[in-house]
Structure formats: C-alpha cells, structure tokens
Design a protein around this nucleic acid. Structure first.
Length: 648
RNA sequence: GCUGUAGUAGCUCAGUGGUAGAGCGCGUCAUUGGUAAUGACGAGGUCGGGAGUUCAAUCCUCCCCUACAGCACCA
C-alpha cells in the first residue's frame, strides 16, 4: 500500500498508509484524542473523521473546543437528530433538507398535521434521548440509482428529487445516525453523544416553500439554535431578549414616535416626536444633497396609467399598485390612475422638458418622493416595510463613461452620511444579471465591472449576489441590520438604460446627434420610514443629540423653582435646543425615571440652589452622576451639540 | 400571498358558557420632595369585526380584518 505524509499544525509530518481516516490518525496520536476528536481540517477542507485521506496533506484535528468547526458540526448533527426524532414520533413525516444557519439550523418537513408549540417540547425531549444513546454516526458513498431506489421504496420523494438535482459525477454520501438515515454532504460527529445535550433549543415553527418556490409545496420548518455549551446558549438567548427591547415598534410606542392602525395597514401615523426625527433627518438630507450637486424636484402623486404602461410598470406591477379612479358620477371622463409606486418615470418627464445637452450631464435630480405600493400583507413589518413611504430618491442622468465615477461619488456621499448618523457596520452587495434580462452580455459585463470598480475605488469591499440584479441592470445594495440581526436594504444604486429608452429621454451630444442617457436610480437612506426604524434600533432609542426629538427636559425639584425653569427653557429654545419644562407636582425621582424611559438625552434639574446660583444640574441619559454647571455654559454647549454634523 | 400563532382598559397581561379583573398610565386631592416609580380616592372596556350554535357567547363553530414569526415578494 502506498504511504502518504500528513503535516500537522506544528509543522511535524508523519507517514501513514494511503486511505487512512482522520479517526485513525487521531488514534495513532493518543486514545484520549481519538475519543475527543470531532472532525479534521484536511488541506483546508472540513473533513469527516471517517473519510479516507488518499494523498499527502496538511491536517488539523478538531475537538469541541474549536468553536467554528464544533458549531458547524453540532448544528448539523442536531438537524439530523431532530429529523430522526420527528420521524420516530410521527413516522408518516417526509424529510427534505436541514442546513446549518447563523446560530443554529432548521429542517423542513412535509407532514399533514401542523406542528404545535407543544410538539417542540416533545421533539426536544426525544432529541435528548437520542443524544444520550450515543448512537454511532456512519457514512457510505452510494450509487445514484441505488440511492434513488432506496428513497422511492421508503416514500421519500423530496430526497429523490434532491438526488436528481445533484450532478452525475458527484458522489452521493449517505449518513446514518443510529438506524436513521439521511442524504448528506457531511461532515458529521462520531456519535450522537458528542452533541452537548444542554446547548440547544428549538425556537419556532414556520412555513417554507419547497426549494424556495412559491408554486411548490408549503413545508413546515422548525428552527433551532445551538452552541457548544449551556452557557453560550444562555448568552445567546439573553442577547435576543435584550435585542427585543430595542425593537423599533416597542421604542416607537415608549418614545411616542408613531403608531399604526387597522384602517391604514402598512402606513405610519407620525406623532410629534417621531415627526421631529423625520423632519430633522430630511432637513439634513436636503442640505447634503444640495452640497452634493443635486437639484431637488417634486412630482405628482396620482398619475394616469398611460405613463405606467409606457414605463412598463403597469405590466409588471399592476397588482402591487394602488389604483385611483374618480367616481363616475362626478367625472367628465373615466380615467384610471395609480398612486406613484416610484418616482423615476416622473423624473424622466422633468428631464425631458426642453433640450438637454451633454454639457448638462451628469444631471443629478433628487426628490423626497412619497410612494405607495400595495405590498403583500405578509411582507409588512413595523415601519421598515410599509405601503406608504417616502424615498430620498434621486436619479443621475449620465453618459456611459460617467457611470463609474458617479457611482464612486455616490458611495462616498452615502458612506459619509451613514457615518454621521452613527452606523459603523454596513455592507455593500452587488447584484448581478438575473436570468430574465434585457441587454447584451457584453454590456452587463461592463456595467457589473463598473459598479465593482467604483466600490473598490471608494475603498469598500462587496459581496456578490448572483442573479439578483434588476432585469434592466445591475445594482448595489447598501445593507444595514436591525436589532436581532436581520438585513435591510437601505441605500441602493441601480444602472438603467431601459427607462430612458422607454420614455424617450435624450440629450444632444458633442457630435450634434441625439443620444440616450443612462439613468442611475439611487437612494441613500432608502426610505425615511425604514431608515428611522433602523436608526432607532441601532441606537436603542438613544439617538444622537441633534436627532433626538426631545433633547432637554428642565425639571423643577420644588415649585418655587418654576419661574426659573421656564427661563431656562426659553433660553435653550432661543439658542436652538429643543427643551421643555416639567413643573408637574412630582418628585424629581419620578421625573428622572419618566424622561429616562422616554429616552430624553439631557435632564436639567433645578431646585433652590440652582435658582440662587443661576446654575442647572445636568444628568445625561444612561449616566448616574450629575454635574452642576452655569446656565450660560450649558446653553452654549448644548447649542453646539444640537447642531447637525454637517453644520458644525 | 402562503404556513403557523395571537387580538380582553392607553400599555403589559390575568380570567370565565351566566355581558369582566390586576399592575402601570390617566383624573382629583394631599404631599415641596435633590436624580429611575410619594400616598389616598376615582374614571376608564360594545373582550378586533360579522354571522352561527345556545335559554344565554368575550369564551364554542365559521368567515373576515389586523398584528407577530418564517417563507415567497421588494420596480
């Protein structure tokens, strides 16, 4: 038998017979390692201990201490163990797929009856039994037709379909956890007892379409979270609990920012406090856009369907548009209109007025455009996904040569704004050509490259989302995350030559001929609604001072201080600070608590001493200590603090 | 839109086949208190909407609406 050389992380190499398993390698080192080992990394690949190694390689053996590999295996084995538990309890259940995801795993089942929350407890119990059995994990590679026959005989049609989708030259790996079997790429643990029995929890049941296709079967998905130990699980559950406190829907109520109600699903009733944030942010964006060379426009809300037919939206999005018709009795002629679901066709109408020259390009046109889309009911989510929203929309009309530069300028524009609004973690995703698309591959190549280059030129990395682009062009998505880690696309930039063509946009080039401009659809915040939702969650309600709806509360300690309280409030208001008086007949403890819960960043307490000395006692949100300061000093300092970052 | 869960006072929630309860909040009064809840009293609900079963429905059944979690969607 040929021998191979395996190199260990410490640089030492040892000779073994070819075809040796990593398990045997562990055994050759020590009995205890053989027992503790969970997997190996062979030539950089995560390797099952049972897989043979046939050539010279680097090798590292893993134990439960190696978090990355251990989490992967524990979660993956739990997926199998859960599927086994479910099939042992309800044998008529059909299995599908069960991948590892962030913090855990899920498994999709096909079963007539619905799983109930109580079932989760039953399943969890069964899983723990399986773990305690310490059943061996075994793996084999099978021939396709044998595997297909096997699953057909066992009445597992989804597995058959999965195998049929696997390329013919790829080996089919079968795994057994005890007697229970699943088709799986691996790797896995050595036996079920290697899964920490107290490190996981089943979280929820939800529907999910087979293969992510809404035309196919709706399966039942069970989600679980898992870690390598009890403490880590506890920490994770704790984190979720804390994150729930930052939910913008909860903070929106506590801070009295907005509400929503049944009569207007997916639309926001902004309260005075919330509208303060909104208008402050809009003022800021307006100044930013002016400085960024944009001209601001405003376009109609209700637009005749003819324009939407011409732009192509009627055909693609009719079901998602709010249709507006005038009552027949009152209308001279019956017209069908739609509330605008987007601003671009209107912006092209503005662009099209008068002749445009190449000297006018790039033309950066912006609008705080209110749009309405009839989003599917299940998509609605607080103020983050709504049916009525206002985009900080903009369209850059430019030549093909200008695309890359304009994109780079936009990324820099956006990144400065995100930084000023307190975001440090955000990502760029580049969505490339989808299957259904217009335009030649050569043009797609070029546009995708331009967007990628622009990112790099601006100094940012990006992830590629293959096939996720719009049918008319590639796009960049600027993604922020909410309190519990869900991704939300906020900013965007999309290249489009389709709309200018459909709506006859043109400019006169240097050569005196008509040319068609490109259009870059772009938004920085995306929509005020979504962005404010994210902003609230990011800051846990403790917004930067200049954005805080209520910046200062001046609270009296005794009623003899009331006059001075009003004087302080007037002085602060005069210097541009949003201050209000609290002279209610309540104790200072009560006032401090109430305004802290309301996330007011600064509380100024005023009693006999302060009146006497013309000072205030300042307390900042979240801090315990207070400081006595001269009124004039506080006034000056807070005036600076309340100035938006672009005006400082 | 799909699967599942839920909807009782402004908020958080308890409860029952015989038309409802707590805490907080709100109002009144007392209290002038120094940094996260002062006390007493009081007001407040067609139990999400509609239909059905029943002598009787907030509770059981059906339909609808809305919200939440996930899936699908996101011009």
């Amino acid at each position: 038998m040929a021998s191979i050389s395996l190199t260990f992380p410490d640089g030492n190499a040892r000779e073994y017979d070819a075809g040796i398993t990593a398990a045997a390698v562990a055994e050759s080192i020590s009995k205890s390692l053989a027992k503790k080992a969970i997997s190996a990394t062979v030539n950089g690949e995560h390797w099952d201990l049972q897989w043979p190694i046939n050539e010279n390689a680097t090798i590292a053996l893993h134990t439960i201490q190696d978090d990355v590999q251990a989490n992967e295996l524990v979660r993956h084995d739990l997926a199998h163990i859960m599927a086994r538990a479910v099939q042992e309890i309800w044998p008529d259940t059909k299995v599908t797929i069960g991948p590892v995801i962030k913090n855990g795993w899920y498994y999709d089942f096909d079963r007539k009856e619905s799983f109930t929350p109580e079932d989760l407890i039953t399943i969890e119990k069964k899983m723990k039994e399986i773990i305690n059995k310490r059943d061996a994990v075994r793996t084999e590679v099978w021939e396709r037709d044998v595997a297909i026959k096997y699953y057909e005989d066992r009445g597992e049609p989804y597995k058959v379909e999965l195998i049929e989708g696997i390329p013919g030259d790829e080996p089919l790996r079968m795994y057994w956890h005890g007697e229970w079997q699943d088709l799986c790429r691996g790797p896995h643990l050595q036996h079920t007892g290697q899964v920490p029995g107290d490190g996981f929890k089943l979280m929820s049941i939800a529907g999910a379409y087979w293969r992510g296709d809404s035309d196919r079967e709706m399966l039942q998905r069970i989600y679980g979270v898992a870690f390598t130990g009890k403490e880590k699980l506890k920490a994770h559950l704790n984190m979720l609990e804390e994150a729930a406190k930052r939910d913008h829907r909860k903070l929106g109520r506590e801070m009295d920012l907005f509400h929503m109600q049944e009569e207007a699903p997916g639309q926001v009733f902004w309260h005075p406090n919330g509208w303060r944030i909104y208008t402050e942010l809009q003022d800021y964006m307006r100044r930013r856009q002016r400085a960024g060379g944009y001209v601001e426009v405003n376009t109609p809300q209700v637009v005749n369907r003819q324009l939407w037919e011409k732009s192509g939206h009627w055909e693609s999005y009719q079901e998602n548009m709010f249709i507006v018709e005038v009552d027949e009795d009152h209308a001279r002629e019956k017209t069908v209109n739609a509330l605008k679901p987007m601003n671009c066709p209107c912006h092209v109408q503005v662009f099209n007025r008068g002749m445009k020259s190449y000297r006018d390009l790039p033309l950066r046109m912006a609008e705080f455009g209110s749009c309405n889309r009839y989003e599917p009911s299940g998509a609605l989510h607080g103020i983050m996904r709504v049916r009525g929203f206002t985009q900080d929309d903009g369209h850059i009309f430019c030549t093909e040569e200008q695309i890359e530069t304009e994109t780079k300028i936009f990324i820099e524009f956006l990144s400065e704004i995100y930084a000023e609004l307190g975001f440090t973690n955000w990502a760029i995703k580049l969505s490339t050509r989808p299957e259904k698309r217009i335009g030649s591959d050569a043009i797609w190549d070029q546009l995708e490259t331009s967007l990628g280059n622009a990112c790099k030129a601006a100094g940012y990395e990006y992830d590629i989302q293959v096939g996720e682009g719009a049918f008319y062009g590639p796009k960049l998505e600027f993604v922020l995350t909410d309190a519990i880690g869900r991704d939300w696309q906020c900013g965007t930039l999309q290249v489009d030559s389709n709309m200018p063509e459909r709506l006859d946009a043109s400019y006169v080039g240097q050569d005196g001929n008509k040319h068609q401009p490109f259009m870059l659809h772009r938004a920085t915040l995306g929509s005020f609604e979504r962005f404010i939702g994210i902003l609230i969650e990011e800051h846990a309600g403790k917004l930067p001072f200049w954005l805080a709806p209520r910046q200062v509360v001046v609270a009296s300690i005794i009623s003899d201080a009331d006059d001075y309280v009003h004087e302080v409030v007037a002085a602060l208001n005069a210097s541009g600070v949003r201050a209000e008086a609290d002279v209610r007949n309540e104790k200072i403890n009560y006032k401090v608590r109430e305004h802290s819960v309301g996330k007011v960043p600064v509380i100024l307490a005023v009693g006999a001493r302060e009146v006497e000395e013309r000072t205030v006692t300042l307390r900042r949100l979240g801090e315990k200590q207070t400081s006595v300061q001269a009124l004039d000093d506080v006034k000056a300092a807070l005036a600076v603090e309340s100035t938006p970052p672009d005006l400082r």
